[in-house]
Write a protein that binds this DNA or RNA. Structure first.
Lengths: 207, 207
DNA sequence: GATTGTCAATACGCTGGCGTATGGTTATAT
DNA sequence: ATATAACCATACGCCAGCGTATTGACAATC
């Protein structure tokens, strides 16, 4: 269905999904998301997308009134997918400690989704992007807050801890994404994640 | 000297520094930094800067070969200033706990510099910006690492804690900057900062 | 097999932003 | 007082990227 959103963690993907003769609006949305993942929101240009899809922009303006509409549609699809997958994939885990640790270690998996998230977060100067990212951020913070409360933290503390956790996530993504030469190797990365877990997740009450 | 870099925390600033008859390259650099602070790197355009300075771009291209050169100069000036002021302003404080707490509470002061930092960090897709921000980031992380070691942490832990601290800083800045409607009020902000301090700064060994 | 609907190609205009060329103005030096 | 340098204005060319308009091709349907 969708190479960007529904791909397995790091499957090698073909640059353009399918090569059927004619395109749907959905195809443009997917191409847009793919482009955002690779080069950010600013790189979503109708002519270059058209070339990528093997057509001209005559096609695009049949499906969308303008560029903004495409970005809106892409954001909508991404947010919907985010809602569907994120919390659900974690609600399977019952034990709160296991769940929270899984959340933290998630940074090491499903790289594609993190890259997209990162690029979107870097484009919050775009007002529509900002709306979406704010909602998504609050949703994740709420989720984390919930988890910390399940671990016995007081609501106010849980909320602040959730914020701290999320801010670290966002900051780390950008750092890791953009400063390639400063990239830690995988062992170092693992150690960092475990340090964060030790620091931010309170110890079980019943040790 | 410089309204953007050397301003007092939140002094009301005139939009354009001075209105002398003729400009220097420095004036353009300052205007660029001011623009970055207000609207990000992408908003640095020579024609709009010229209008802001009350001249035309004929002036600009006398002082600089092109737009990139201006951005380079602005980044250089910013980084030099950052090196001069940041660590020095904190090296006054002797007691390591006081020093670290001061670092954390710094988020609440000197808003102007944080805003600039944030906008620069949001432009790391620009390669020259990325170089600078990477250096600055590493410098700050080193500084924090040093501080955590003075508090008795083992080097590896201190480094990871420093990373965590810095990532939280970066993430928080962007969150706070861009999601205006979600802005915490000042009390909430204070509580957040204190929570972060409690969570990330280890207790004194000699309680 | 003609019509209609769906998708695409081509050609065009418009705008914003960069950069150049050239000439004008002001200050400074001699 | 005039020559030179420093600074600025004006006018222009160029390109990327958006959006429009018109026509064309293919498929489905009748």
């Amino acid at each position: 269905m969708d190479a960007v959103l529904n791909a397995e963690p790091d499957m090698p993907q073909t640059a353009v999904s399918s090569d059927k003769a004619r395109l749907s609006a959905e195809d443009w949305v997917d191409a847009a998301l793919e482009t955002i993942k690779e080069s950010g929101v600013g790189a979503v240009a109708v002519e270059s997308l058209a070339k990528r899809l093997g057509v001209t922009k005559g096609s695009f303006y049949w499906h969308f009134p303008n560029r903004e509409a495409l970005i809106d549609a892409a954001l909508r699809k991404w947010e919907e997918n985010d809602i569907r997958t994120f919390e659900r994939s974690l609600s399977i885990i019952k034990d709160p400690h296991d769940k929270m640790r899984a959340v933290f270690r998630r940074t090491r998996k499903e790289i594609t989704s993190h890259v997209l998230f990162c690029h979107l977060f870097m484009a919050v100067d775009h007002p529509r992007v900002a709306e979406v990212m704010q909602r998504v951020s609050e949703r994740r913070i709420d989720f984390l807050c919930q988890g910390f409360m399940e671990l016995g933290m007081a609501p106010a503390d849980a909320r602040n801890r959730a914020r701290l956790t999320f801010m670290n996530y966002v900051g780390f993504l950008q750092y890791y994404q953009n400063f390639k030469s400063a990239r830690m190797d995988l062992d170092e990365l693992d150690e960092y994640v475990e340090h964060v877990i030790r620091t931010l997740i309170p110890e079980p009450a019943t040790a």
